[in-house]
Computed example of a mutant assay.
Amino acid sequence: MLLNIHPENPDEKRMLQVVDVLRSGGVIIYPTDTVYSIGCDVNNVKAVARVAHIKGLKPEKANFSIICYDLSHIAEYARVNTPEYKMMKKNLPGPFTFILNGSSALPKIFKSNKKEVGIRIPDNNIARQLVQMLGNPLIATSVHDDDEVLEYTTDPELIHEKYEKLVDIVINGGYGNNEASTIIDYTSGEPELVRQGIGDLVY
């Protein structure tokens, strides 16, 4: 199903429709402030396995990020010290993925293969409100393109054509970007740039 949702003012009824699908173990494709992502409720093991299968990965080998609603939400799933907190406060919501040391609340799927987790708070109302309404973070893994020139598919209608049999809902929240987030590894206590993406970090 292709579901149109306004990116600035998401329709509550349609958002609840998506949340119901997520609660029942569904998999969706949704917009962020960078590229479109495939995702599900982080606590639903079967749904996470479905996302991994779509990406051609074993769940325990998948490097999925999670979408949180705000900084206090991050503290539930990762150990955040003062320097990391100050850095994230300056840059989030925004097009960044911060790799942090995970907390004991991190779902088992993450703990099986690593102790760290990539965390995002995208500057996108649809993604953040879905997390808020669901009450749990969303898995986030980018929708890649088969095209040799473009790495990411930006047109939600084309995404729907490709994935409609694999996912339950594709949200049309307008065209996405074709550049991914900037990744910062903070697991050693010092910020290390892993990938320069669309976001320019403010120190």
Rank of each mutant, 00 (worst) to 15 (best):
N101Q: 02
D147N: 15
G173Y: 03
A49V: 05
M88R: 05
N91C: 02
I74N: 06
F110Y: 13
N177K: 14
E161H: 11
D70S: 07
P7K: 03
N91S: 08
I74L: 08
E76Y: 13
A127E: 00
M1P: 15
V48A: 15
R23A: 10
E60F: 10
E76I: 15
I29L: 09
N101F: 03
N63Q: 07
I139T: 06
N136C: 04
Y186M: 14
Y77K: 01
L201H: 04
D200T: 13
D20H: 11
L138P: 02
I74T: 03
K61R: 13
S104E: 15
V21W: 07
V42A: 11
D146A: 12
E157F: 12
K58F: 08
M133I: 11
Q132C: 06
K111N: 06
R128A: 01
A180S: 13
Y30R: 07
V21Q: 04
T82Y: 12
Y163F: 15
L106I: 07
N81D: 14
V170K: 03
K86Y: 12
V18S: 05
S104K: 13
L150G: 10
Y77L: 07
N9L: 13
T141N: 00
L106F: 10
D147M: 08
Y203S: 10
K165L: 09
E179K: 12
F64I: 11
G102A: 08
G135F: 10
D33M: 07
R128P: 00
G94F: 10
G199K: 06
K108D: 06
I183P: 04
D185P: 05
S65V: 03
G176A: 15
P95W: 09
Q196F: 04
I139K: 03
C40D: 01
V80T: 03
V149T: 10
L16W: 09
K162D: 06
I198Q: 11
G118Y: 09
V167P: 08
D155H: 08
V21N: 02
L71P: 08
P83M: 08
A52W: 02
S37F: 12
D146N: 13
S103K: 09
D155M: 08
I66A: 07
N43W: 11
C68Q: 01
I74D: 09
L193P: 00
T97V: 12
N44T: 02
P191E: 01
E151T: 14
A75H: 08
P7R: 05
P83V: 00
Y163N: 04
A78S: 13
A62W: 09
G174V: 07
A78C: 06
D168L: 08
S188K: 09
R23I: 00
M15Q: 10
I28M: 06
L22K: 05
I126T: 04
C40A: 14
Y85T: 05
D123H: 12
C68S: 12
K165S: 13
Q132K: 15
T34N: 11
R50F: 06
L92S: 03
G39E: 00
C68A: 15
S142I: 10
M88H: 01
G135W: 02
S112K: 13
R128W: 03
E8F: 12
P122W: 14
L138K: 00
P191C: 05
I126E: 01
V170W: 03
L106M: 14
S37G: 15
